[in-house]
Design a binder for these strands. Structure first.
Ligand SMILES: [Mn+2]
Ligand SMILES: [Mn+2]
Ligand SMILES: [Zn+2]
Ligand SMILES: [Zn+2]
Lengths: 140, 140
DNA sequence: TCATTATTTTTGACAAAGTCCAAAACTCGG
DNA sequence: CCGAGTTTTGGACTTTGTCAAAAATAATGA
């Protein structure tokens, strides 16, 4: 994120210290949880309420400025890499989350075979596996 | 599920009324939540504790007798259609969940492009959209 | 610049989904 | 039918997030 303040103005959002700090935290910590981000913002602003973190994350997500991903058995994670339809690779044991480029490119990147009359707008793909560190731990 | 009791014995699980009832409920209500299943079991057994429903669902899932799916913004859902690597199509507004055959067939059905050294064991795909009923509601 | 007004932030209660724990009930092999 | 080992139960607890009302702040424009 080049300029959080400009980004907020571009989306007609009043500029506040909390919004700037959360936006910077999301930028600097891809796939972080609300808790991670709260910690990061506190190290920056000194303090922020839990509710404000959720408020800001919700409004930024609604505006499409950031993206929320919600893998099973994990609190929601956030990132500012948007618009490229990329997917995620998640470690089953430690939750480490990595970006995976979409092979197809444009969304929705997969056609559902039998779609039951649904109007499909997204094909969400999560690759599940074990990260290198956790593979080592398991073997030892 | 032909014979819940036999299935339990095949997996060395003591046969209990609760397990049989939950297994039958999962069979009869694909993609039901723990709450849905509790209601269904109560109509069958008369009563069951909330904890038992979770106990049974967990042990059945661990043994691979049933499968758990956890779409965003929904409690976990369960099904006994396993081993065919099928995917799901979920309505964003009402949560209706339908099966979608996997185009590829065997798991993992997609190769991650850049896999960061992870050992991938599953490619989970969820198609998000709007079901016919909710499309109609939105238009009107 | 400063007052006004709408928006945001904060605090604290609340809710949903699920887990932990210990006591009571049950299953199953002998 | 007994006894050991599981399972079930009820209740407290945890995690992640939302709701609501009061206090603080940002934008507007005189
Ligand atoms: Mn990402
Ligand atoms: Mn299914
Ligand atoms: Zn890991
Ligand atoms: Zn629907």
């Amino acid at each position: 994120m080049r300029d959080p303040e400009a980004t907020l103005r571009q989306h007609d959002l009043p500029v506040t210290a909390q919004r700037i700090a959360v936006l910077r935290a999301v930028s600097g910590h891809p796939h972080a949880t609300a808790d991670d981000l709260t910690a990061s913002v506190c190290g920056d602003l000194g303090t922020i309420s839990r509710q404000s973190v959720y408020n800001v994350l919700n409004v930024l997500t609604d505006k499409g400025i950031i993206r929320r991903i919600q893998p099973a058995d994990s609190p929601a994670r956030y990132e500012d890499r948007i618009g490229d339809n990329h997917h995620h690779l998640v470690c089953r044991s430690c939750g480490r989350t990595e970006d995976v480029c979409c092979a197809v490119g444009e969304a929705p990147c997969l056609k559902a075979h039998s779609h039951h009359g649904f109007k499909i707008d997204e094909a969400e793909v999560i690759y599940w596996g074990t990260c290198p560190a956790c593979q080592k731990k398991k073997r030892s």
